[in-house]
C-alpha cells in the first residue's frame, strides 16, 4: 500500500521534527560535547527553525521545488558540515523526483536513496564511520527491501524507522573517521554520534507522520 505525500504534509512533518529537535537540545549538545565541539544542536535547530519559518512558502510549492528550497535553506542556515551535507542531499533528492507535484512511497524511497548517496560522495564517507549516514543508510536499505517484499505501508514505515533508530544506536561502538570526533584518542567509541541521532529523529518523525496521517488504519 502506497501513500501520497504532498508539500503540505512535508511542512507538517518539518514542524513536528523541529519540535523534537528543539526539545532534545540539552541531550544532543551533551552528546556533541563528548565527541565534537558542542554546536551541532544549535546549528541544526537553527536550520529547522528556518525551514519552519518558510513553511508557508514551501507548502504551496510542488514537492520537487520544495525539496530544492529546503536544500538551499539548510545549506545557508545550518552552515558547517551538516549544512552542506543536508543541503546537497535535499538538492539531489529534488532531482530524482523532478516534475512531481507530490510523491508516493517508491518516490520517497528513491529520494532518500539519492540523499544518502550524495552525502556519502560529498563527505567521502561510508557507513560505519560514525556519522549521520549510519542512521540514513540502513533506513534506505530497509525501505528498499520492504518495497520489494510488498508488505503493508504501515509495516514498511515501522521497519524504516527501526532501522534508522538502530543505526544511530550502532554508532556508539564505532570509531569516528571524519569530523572532530576523529581527533579523539578513542575516536569517540562509547558515545553516540549526535548527527546520527538527529538524523534518526527526522526519519522517525517522518515515518510516524506517514503512519498517523497518510496510511489507512
Amino acid at each position: 500500500m502506497s501513500f501520497t505525500l504532498t508539500s503540505k504534509d512535508y511542512v507538517n512533518y518539518i514542524n513536528i521534527v523541529k519540535q523534537r529537535i528543539y526539545e532534545n537540545g540539552d541531550y544532543i549538545s551533551g552528546l556533541d560535547a563528548a565527541t565534537g565541539d558542542g554546536d551541532h544542536w544549535s546549528n541544526i535547530n537553527m536550520g529547522f527553525e528556518s525551514l519552519a519559518a518558510a513553511g508557508e512558502e514551501l507548502q504551496n510549492m510542488p514537492i520537487d521545488a520544495a525539496f530544492k528550497k529546503i536544500g538551499m535553506l539548510m545549506m545557508s542556515k545550518i552552515g558547517g558540515s551538516s549544512g552542506i551535507l543536508y543541503g546537497g542531499a535535499y538538492m539531489a533528492a529534488s532531482k530524482v523526483i523532478a516534475g512531481k507535484e507530490s510523491i508516493d512511497s517508491q518516490d520517497l524511497c528513491n529520494a532518500m536513496e539519492a540523499m544518502v548517496n550524495d552525502m556519502m560522495q560529498r563527505g567521502k564517507a561510508e557507513p560505519g564511520m560514525k556519522t549521520m549516514i549510519d542512521s540514513l543508510y540502513p533506513a534506505v536499505m530497509a525501505y528498499k527491501q520492504a518495497l520489494s517484499a510488498n508488505i503493508s505501508g504501515r509495516e514498511t514505515m515501522i521497519l524504516v524507522k527501526k532501522a534508522a533508530i538502530d543505526g544511530a544506536e550502532a554508532t556508539r561502538n564505532m570509531e569516528a573517521v571524519k569530523g572532530r570526533a576523529s581527533y579523539q584518542t578513542n575516536k569517540g567509541v562509547g558515545n553516540l554520534d549526535p548527527g546520527a541521532v538527529t538524523m534518526s529523529y527526522q526519519i522517525e518523525c517522518l515515518c510516524d507522520y506517514i503512519i498517523d496521517n497518510l496510511i489507512d488504519k
Partner: peptide, 12 residues
Amino acid sequence: AGNVFASPSPDR
C-alpha cells in the same frame, strides 16, 4: 565568516 565554529556556506 560562518557561524561560531561552523564553516560558512557556499553562497556566502
